[in-house]
Simulated assay, not measured.
Amino acid sequence: MLTGKQRSFLRGLANKEKPITQIGKAGLTVSFLEQLDLALESRELVKVTILETALLDTKDTANEAAELLKAEYVQAIGNKFVLFRRSKNNPRIELPRPKK
């Protein structure tokens, strides 16, 4: 579970990133989820665009994808959303530590 400070940090990183994949009319397909899973493992932070023709709610789709991929929902703005999941093999993003 991300803290507010960690989520804010990830939002800042995601702001500079371009979306790497798109969701179309088919929605969250198995092949799309496999592709997103690989992207999360290699990049840790992924921005996704939902095409207008998909007619999906951005926040609901982001939360569903996060749950299926065991990732963290970071944010959804307009038709884009951001997910984070620490890489098992090559962690690159150092999150701020929560205060005790």
Rank of each mutant, 00 (worst) to 15 (best):
M1D: 02
M1R: 09
M1P: 01
M1G: 14
M1H: 10
M1K: 10
L2I: 03
L2Y: 02
T3K: 01
G4F: 07
G4C: 05
K5G: 04
K5M: 15
Q6M: 07
Q6R: 14
R7L: 04
S8N: 11
S8C: 11
S8M: 11
F9E: 03
F9G: 04
L10R: 01
L10E: 11
L10P: 03
L10D: 09
R11E: 12
R11S: 09
G12E: 13
A14H: 09
N15S: 02
K16E: 15
K16G: 03
E17T: 07
K18Q: 15
K18M: 12
P19H: 08
I20N: 00
I20Q: 12
Q22M: 13
Q22V: 14
Q22K: 13
I23E: 09
I23L: 05
G24S: 03
A26H: 15
T29N: 04
T29E: 12
T29Y: 01
V30G: 15
L33E: 11
L33T: 08
E34W: 02
Q35M: 02
L36N: 14
D37Q: 02
D37G: 07
D37E: 14
A39Q: 13
L40V: 10
L40D: 05
E41C: 08
S42T: 06
R43M: 13
R43C: 01
R43F: 05
R43K: 11
E44I: 08
E44M: 13
E44G: 11
L45D: 00
L45N: 05
L45H: 08
V46S: 09
V46T: 03
K47L: 07
K47N: 07
K47Q: 08
V48L: 05
T49P: 12
T49D: 15
I50Q: 01
I50G: 10
L51V: 10
T53F: 10
A54W: 04
A54Q: 06
A54I: 04
L56I: 15
L56A: 00
D57G: 14
D57L: 06
D57E: 11
T58H: 13
T58S: 05
T61L: 02
A62M: 05
A62L: 09
N63Y: 10
E64A: 08
A65V: 14
A65N: 00
A66N: 11
A66T: 01
A66D: 00
E67G: 01
L68G: 06
L69Y: 01
L69Q: 10
K70R: 11
K70S: 07
A71G: 13
E72S: 12
E72G: 15
E72H: 05
E72I: 09
Y73T: 13
V74C: 00
Q75K: 08
A76T: 00
A76C: 07
I77L: 06
I77C: 07
G78D: 04
G78F: 02
N79Q: 13
N79P: 04
K80H: 04
K80I: 14
K80C: 14
F81P: 02
V82S: 04
L83A: 09
F84T: 03
F84R: 08
F84C: 00
F84S: 08
R85D: 07
R85H: 11
R86K: 14
R86Y: 05
R86S: 15
R86I: 03
S87K: 07
S87G: 06
K88H: 07
K88S: 14
N89D: 12
N89F: 11
N90V: 09
P91Y: 05
P91N: 10
R92G: 06
R92H: 08
L95V: 15
L95P: 02
P96E: 10
P96W: 11
R97K: 09
K99L: 13
K100D: 13
